[in-house]
Computed example of a mutant assay.
Amino acid sequence: MREETNSYDASHIKVLEGWEAVRKRPGMYIGSTGERGLRQMVFGVTDRAVNEVLAGRAGSVEVVLTVDGGVTVTDDGPGIPVDGGEGADGPGSGPGLEALLTQMKFRGRSGGRHDVMLGILGVEPSVVNALSGRMRAEVRCEGVRWVQEYARAVAVTPLTEAGKTAGRGTTIGFWPDAEVFETVEFSFETLAERFRELALLNRGLEISLTDRRHPGEPRSQRFRFEGGARDFVDFLDDHGAPASEDTFGFEYEDPRMEGTVDVAFRWCGSHEGRILGFANSRPTAGGTHERGFREGVAEAIDAHARERLVPAATAPESEVDPIGEGMTAVVSVKLDHPEFEGAARNVLVNSSVRVCVREAVQERLGRWLEEDPERAAAFVGRLRT
């Protein structure tokens, strides 16, 4: 038998640096080279524009799927600083345009409850640029329009003054690199679903999505809601048959959890239930906010039954588990310091949130039931039979 010696040393190791690493392993940054990854690309550019609106520096965001396969994201805010000298929050508050779109950095999120991240991965605009065959930025600031072109995270033109303008804001357009992606076809429906969800969770946020890929059949949707979780529940039950027209809901700030809770729910005729949880506008798969909500509802129902309806001694108290039957609910918390479980970061673990949400729901739901004995009897009877 012939022996073969296989050697492995440092010469076999290839170190990928900078944008080469992003383009070689795009899934590590956007999760997929399919439609899901394209969606994260859109979110990576839209994040900044949405937060401009939520901070009160802009009025709306417009996202357009262009006829040539690109995406443009426009806001009417003060404009990204072209030189990085002074951002919207004062001198040195943000990177300049070219640095934002060409320099790799880890995402640092310091906005707390007021900072929204559309996707689950926190994709930076520079990563979007690296995975795009072309990117174009236009900034309208102080009466001047500035433009710059990029390709694969490299500036291919200098920042150029392109004339005067009466408007203000930023437009970033990008065209995904067909050499990287399995498909470059964006899904209008999935983008619209997330933008609608975001507008429902953030009162007054206005965001529109327009599809111009088929000139003969353009379509557009505009999202803006003022009712928060209440509007969300009404939207979810739009085609249902609610047992009552009343929707219980409230928004409350509690310094103990360093944040706010926005809750709404109603019971419908169906036996199926939906309890949707969100933390800083991100969907969750459970956590302390949802647990506190369930406990608060159960305690309020049981307390009302004991004090007002005088149930038979053999009647069992409500358990937490049956609460969701036939219920449509939205539980949204916005925290300065959210803590999540595991790498997926979709289970909230802040212990103070459970206590605060439970107490707030118990107190307010109890008061709501007392205001309408007939309604209370129907709700309590549903859960204690």
Rank of each mutant, 00 (worst) to 15 (best):
E17C: 01
R224K: 15
H214A: 06
S132H: 10
E245D: 12
A344I: 09
A305W: 12
R294V: 04
E339A: 15
A285I: 05
V15F: 00
Y252N: 02
R39Y: 00
E272Q: 12
L348A: 03
A279P: 04
D89C: 01
T284K: 02
E124R: 13
E359P: 01
V123L: 08
E359S: 11
R256F: 10
T171A: 03
G167V: 07
I13T: 02
G143P: 07
R382D: 00
G228T: 07
I120D: 14
S126Y: 02
R145K: 15
V82I: 14
G27S: 14
V353N: 02
D262G: 07
E251V: 11
R354A: 13
M41Y: 00
I13S: 01
G87P: 04
P26S: 14
R145C: 13
L383W: 15
V331L: 06
N51Y: 09
V297W: 03
G173S: 04
E4Q: 06
W146S: 13
H271S: 12
V53E: 14
G108M: 06
R168H: 10
G342W: 11
E290L: 13
E124F: 01
H304V: 02
R375A: 10
G227W: 00
V347R: 15
G56V: 13
R382M: 06
G173E: 01
T157N: 06
E98G: 04
L97E: 04
Q148F: 13
G342S: 13
A58V: 06
V156Q: 04
V73M: 02
A88H: 07
A303H: 05
V45M: 12
M117R: 12
I207A: 08
L191M: 05
A329T: 12
E4N: 06
W19P: 09
A151K: 15
F195D: 02
F106N: 09
P373L: 13
D9Q: 04
S351L: 03
T160Y: 10
R152A: 12
V233T: 10
G94N: 08
T288N: 11
E251F: 05
T171Y: 00
R222N: 06
A58P: 06
F265D: 08
E253W: 07
L16I: 02
A303N: 04
F188R: 01
G227V: 05
D83T: 11
R354C: 02
G18L: 08
G108Y: 08
V184S: 11
E182M: 01
R256P: 00
R145E: 09
T72A: 12
F106A: 11
S93M: 09
G296M: 09
G112F: 01
A376P: 13
F223C: 01
F181E: 01
G87C: 04
S60K: 15
R109Q: 09
P158A: 15
G286H: 09
N346A: 08
E193C: 03
I30H: 04
G112A: 06
L118V: 12
L65Q: 03
V147I: 15
S110Y: 13
R219K: 14
G324M: 09
G70D: 05
E295S: 10
D238M: 14
S244D: 14
L365Y: 09
D177R: 05
G133E: 12
D76E: 00
P91K: 15
A151N: 14
G366P: 11
V261G: 08
E20S: 06
G228I: 08
T288A: 08
E258M: 08
V154T: 11
L16N: 05
V67Q: 15
C268D: 02
D254T: 02
